[in-house]
Design a protein around this nucleic acid. Structure first.
Lengths: 127, 127
DNA sequence: GCTGTTGCTTAGAATAGTTCTAAAAATAAT
DNA sequence: ATTATTTTTAGAACTATTCTAAGCAACAGC
C-alpha cells in the first residue's frame, strides 16, 4: 500500500501509519504524536509532522483546515466531507449523498447550519 | 451609534471598514494592517485582528482558512466559493453556477483540479 | 568486509500568525 | 461631573508548525 503510493516505508513511518490507519479518525499532528507515545514507541514530533505532510502529499490522508490553529488529518481518504461544530469542536463525516444537498434536516442533532466553506484547490499544470 | 449588523462603529472600525470594503478583495489581517497604514491612518494590529474577528462574527466578512498559516478575509460576503492555487497562492472567486459543478474546463487557465475541500460549519442550537 | 551517497530522524531553536494582558483612552450612562 | 462600560494600544505570550544541523540507517558499488 505504502510502497504503491511512492512512500519509502521506514520504521517510524510504519509505526505512525499503524496508529493512524488503525481506524477512521480525525487527528491533529499533536494528538497523533501522543497516540504513538501511548503505544510505547518513540517517534519525534518532527517526524510525525513530516510524515503527515508526506502522507497528505501522497494522497494517503486528507488535510482538513478548520481554522488557523486546527489542522486535522483524516485517515479515511475516501471522498467525503465534514460537519464541524464550532461550539463543540466535533468533526463529523458527511455521507456523500448529503454533500450535494446540505439538507438541514440531516445536520447533526441539535445543531443549525452556520457556514458552508468550500475551497477548490487547483495547481499549475507542469509544462 | 449602531450599524445595521450590530457593530458599534468606532473611529478605528470605520477606518478599517473603509479600506476593507473599498472593493471586493481577499486580504490577510496583516495585509489589511499595511493597507490601513498606507492611508496615513494609524490603527494598531491588535485592533485590526479584533475588528476582522468581530466583522466575521457579525457576517460582514467571510473567513477563508486556506491552511494553518493563511487566513483570508473576503470583503465580498455574497454567496460564493473559491479557487485556491497551491502553487501561486492565488485566491479566485468561483461564480455560483460553477460551485455546483466543478467543471474542469472552467478552472483557472493552466491549472488542474487538486482537492475540493468543503466544510459545513454548524453550531449548537441555543436552548 | 569498507566507503560514499542518499535519505531519514532527531532535539531544540526559530518562525509567524494570532491571542492575551494590563493600562490608557474614549464613549456612554447615571 | 462622576462612574461605568467599551475600545484601543503596545508589547508580551502563546502555539502550531517549520527549520537547522548533526547524527543514523540503508544500501550500492567496490
Amino acid at each position: 500500500m505504502m510502497v504503491a503510493h511512492g512512500v519509502n516505508l521506514t520504521k517510524q513511518r510504519r509505526i505512525i501509519a499503524d496508529v493512524l490507519f488503525e481506524r477512521n479518525q480525525h487527528v491533529t499532528a499533536d494528538q497523533l504524536f501522543d497516540l504513538v507515545k501511548q503505544t510505547g514507541s518513540r517517534v519525534s514530533k518532527a517526524t510525525v509532522y513530516n510524515t503527515l505532510g508526506l502522507f497528505a502529499r501522497k494522497g494517503l490522508v486528507r488535510e482538513i483546515f478548520i481554522d488557523a490553529s486546527r489542522t486535522f488529518y483524516d485517515s479515511n481518504n475516501s471522498h467525503h466531507h465534514h460537519f464541524y461544530n464550532v461550539d463543540t469542536g466535533d468533526l463529523i463525516d458527511i455521507k456523500d449523498r448529503l454533500a450535494a444537498h446540505f439538507i438541514e434536516q440531516d445536520l447533526p442533532e441539535g445543531t443549525s447550519m452556520d457556514v458552508v466553506d468550500l475551497v477548490v484547490r487547483v495547481r499549475n499544470i507542469k509544462s
